[in-house]
Design a binder for these strands. Structure first.
Lengths: 233, 233
DNA sequence: ATGAAAAATTGATATATCTCAACATTAAAC
DNA sequence: GTTTAATGTTGAGATATATCAATTTTTCAT
């Protein structure tokens, strides 16, 4: 509890978990942000943002982990990416229609800053370097989706599951042993297959000793083999 | 041939086929663009831009039609969208790495303007309204890809093919009878299936009298039924 | 600790989809 | 116009994947 208050009282100018993007702001701009932000803590499982709702703020994740996903047809979702601490979250709604076009749910207890959208836009229009970096960030996200579209439509299940695990390894945890933050069902949403198929593939991967799963931890034993599976699709 | 020269000599300030985006520029800005653009005519089938190459210019299509597609695994492609006259084409490469992240090939004889990227960026940084509209355009494209990702991964083949045809109807031609600019193979690339499957679905749709194909023209006979197929996936 | 709910597992079966191979038609090149 | 190449068509068979139903394990609230 002590930690809760400490964090929420911390000012942007002292923040250690700021996204690279906000690191480009000067002191006055940061104070402007600070005066127009809301800081909220979420428990694992809670919805941080719901697709379709009005976008009043942009987000910056200070700590924890979350999944960012598209809600599709008949309740099915596609996880676009995992959100890490210091990740900025804007999205195409900023300029299109001021709505959120994806949902975000906390996977771990997470601390999130909500920065007023108009304030954010104001700074974008006055700070050239900031604007440029924002666009870089946005563009990177778009390329991730391009990639995802290709691999989800052109690879078979083993390749897609390998890609999902490699994504967690390469981009999220950056080590061969990491906590299983995603349920089998969520893994299936990340790799566009049924829950049962995800279970079977993980079992196969374990049988072939490519991975080991125990105590809510996943260890990648043979990353080269996984990369090969990813490669051959 | 006369037409070729006439078009290529036309100045931006007199251009009738300018994208909405460039319509926001004032006379001086247009003259700046005019002085730093190249105008090129392409024959149907020619490659306008190749994925992976250096992005020296952004594009604006004056006339004709083109396909914009991602080159994926083992030569397979995914068509992202059809480019119409007056469409602006930038892409995530502008801010990410100055490379093209998709390829563009002319479907019909097409006339395309190439605007110097640095000039384009310069105007972006000086004309607020222009910048805002550019971002709207970019964001709309991103949402198209979100949509595509969902429908390609969560619908079955009949729904995907219905979506492809409805896309041509609703967004490209806006009438129930239109020229078959895409081969069966290209239609399969638009709906993420094999060429043979695309052929079969079109045959099925024809048998059920939802569409009619003759003389390089496709006519949608029962759009409500198509929408229903799209809807049920 | 206990029971209820949620998640994971499994194998059998049904279905969707691709691949292959053979052939037909159309467009392009000479 | 004839030949050649590209595109389109078809059905059969193989394969990938989803669905279903039954069971076990884990998690969570009381």
């Amino acid at each position: 509890m002590a930690e809760y208050f400490e964090k929420s009282l911390k000012r942007c100018t002292d923040c250690q978990c700021m996204s690279q993007l906000f690191g480009l702001l000067n002191k006055e701009e940061l104070e402007f942000v600070d005066a127009n932000k809301i800081h909220v803590n979420f428990k694992a499982g809670e919805t941080i943002k719901k697709q379709g709702t009005f976008m009043s703020h942009v987000l910056s994740v200070n700590s924890g982990l979350a999944k960012l996903y598209l809600e599709g047809i008949e309740g099915r979702s596609a996880i676009l990416r995992i959100v890490k601490p210091s990740n900025f979250i804007g999205g195409p709604g900023i300029y299109h229609d001021q709505r959120h076009h994806f949902s975000i749910t906390a996977l771990l207890d997470s601390s999130v800053c909500f920065i007023d959208l108009q304030v954010f836009k104001k700074i974008l229009s006055t700070n050239q370097v900031f604007a440029e970096e924002f666009l870089k960030d946005f563009s990177r996200d778009v390329l991730t989706v391009y990639n995802r579209l290709i691999y989800l439509t052109q690879k078979q299940m083993p390749g897609r599951m390998a890609d999902a695990l490699l994504y967690l390894h390469d981009e999220i945890f950056e080590q061969s042993k990491f906590p299983m933050i995603l349920s089998r069902f969520e893994l299936s949403e990340l790799s566009a297959m049924s829950r049962e198929s995800a279970v079977k593939l993980l079992r196969d991967f374990q049988k072939e000793e490519l991975i080991r799963i125990s105590d809510h931890e996943l260890e990648i034993l043979d990353i080269d083999a996984l990369r090969k599976i990813s490669h051959i699709g």
